[in-house]
Design a protein around this nucleic acid. Structure first.
Length: 291
DNA sequence: CACCATGTTCCTTG
DNA sequence: CCAAGGAACATGGT
């Protein structure tokens, strides 16, 4: 679930739902999720604080809080890892099996569920420092992108996963953007022509924006409830309702479609490994050096 | 049983 | 210095 578009959609729902609410209690169910830092220090800092805003930077969630007594502003950084989810549920509802952290608000509970526990929460924000430009922001210029790609023989697909080049692109949207730009994933990044860089920049922005638009149309719900329930007011859950069709995968052009026909030319989509991660591409629409 | 999985970080080898 | 590869984290799906 979590690359930039999924985090963006989540933040858009969380911001109005959390802003102004006070954290009454914090339960850290998985100590390692608070990293770096300790669960005790995290609880001490956060309990009693009030949310003032929620933002996104790359794939990180930036929770802005104000301490109850000192009124000092503070920041909690969140990352969903591979399987993290965040949602609100009624405070008396059962916690999910793989709950990492739960925060009691007044009537609601804010839940960080994370099956594989790769996600994290921290009072430490230095992880934001090395991040490259926001792909949808004004800093992501052709010049900045060009600077991030030159003088590297790394395959362009691998470069796109480097959060210092551009922040928020992950394994799914790297393949999708390269298909959209018709650029071979294995092309060394320094060999991209200026024209290709311009096209790839536009493709990244278009791909991410389409995904955000798509995500915004997905009905929200929370585990264990049917959709559209009358008491779902103020609650949300970004993801697939149990048993619902996986519309999420159907909109992807190449990711996880190995062997299936390219939607543009009919050629079978190919899969290869780059740095141990799957890359999907159309050998006809994205011609390039054979590796 | 085998292999794969939306992410990041650390370590080793060349 | 760079690049590549592997492992670790931990659990589930096919």
């Amino acid at each position: 679930m979590p690359e930039l578009p999924e985090v963006e959609v989540l933040v858009r729902h969380l911001a109005p739902a959390l802003t102004g609410r006070r954290i009454r209690a914090v339960e850290v169910h998985r100590a390692k999720t608070v990293r770096p830092g300790s669960p005790a220090a995290f609880r001490r800092a956060v309990e009693g604080a009030r949310f003032t805003d929620v933002e996104r930077r790359g794939k990180y969630l930036v929770f802005r809080l104000r301490a109850s007594r000192s009124r000092a502003p503070m920041v909690v950084l969140g990352h969903l890892g591979m399987t993290g989810r965040m949602y609100l549920q009624p405070r008396r509802a059962a916690l999910p099996r793989h709950v990492a952290v739960a925060m009691d608000l007044d009537r609601l509970r804010f839940v960080f569920e994370d099956t594989r526990y790769f996600g994290r929460l921290s009072l430490e924000t230095s992880a934001l420092e090395p991040l490259g430009p926001e792909p949808l922001g004004p800093e992501f210029t052709v010049g900045a992108f060009l600077a991030g790609l030159r003088r590297s023989r790394q395959a362009i697909k691998v470069r796109l996963l480097d959060q210092r080049v551009v922040a928020g692109v992950g394994n799914i949207y790297a393949s999708e953007a390269l298909f959209r730009a018709r650029i071979a994933p294995q092309l060394p990044s320094e060999q991209l022509t200026r024209e290709q860089v311009v096209r790839l920049r536009a493709a990244i922005r278009g791909t991410l924006q389409d995904a955000i638009r798509f995500g915004s149309t997905v009905p929200l719900d929370w585990p264990g409830r049917g959709e559209g329930g009358s008491d779902s007011r103020g609650l949300f859950y970004y993801g697939r309702a149990p048993g619902a069709p996986d519309v999420y995968a159907e909109r992807l052009a190449v990711y996880d479609r190995a062997g299936q026909p390219c939607r543009r030319c009919g050629t079978r989509i190919a899969r290869m490994l780059q740095m141990g991660r799957s890359t999907y591409y159309c050998p006809h629409c994205q011609p390039g050096p054979t590796v």
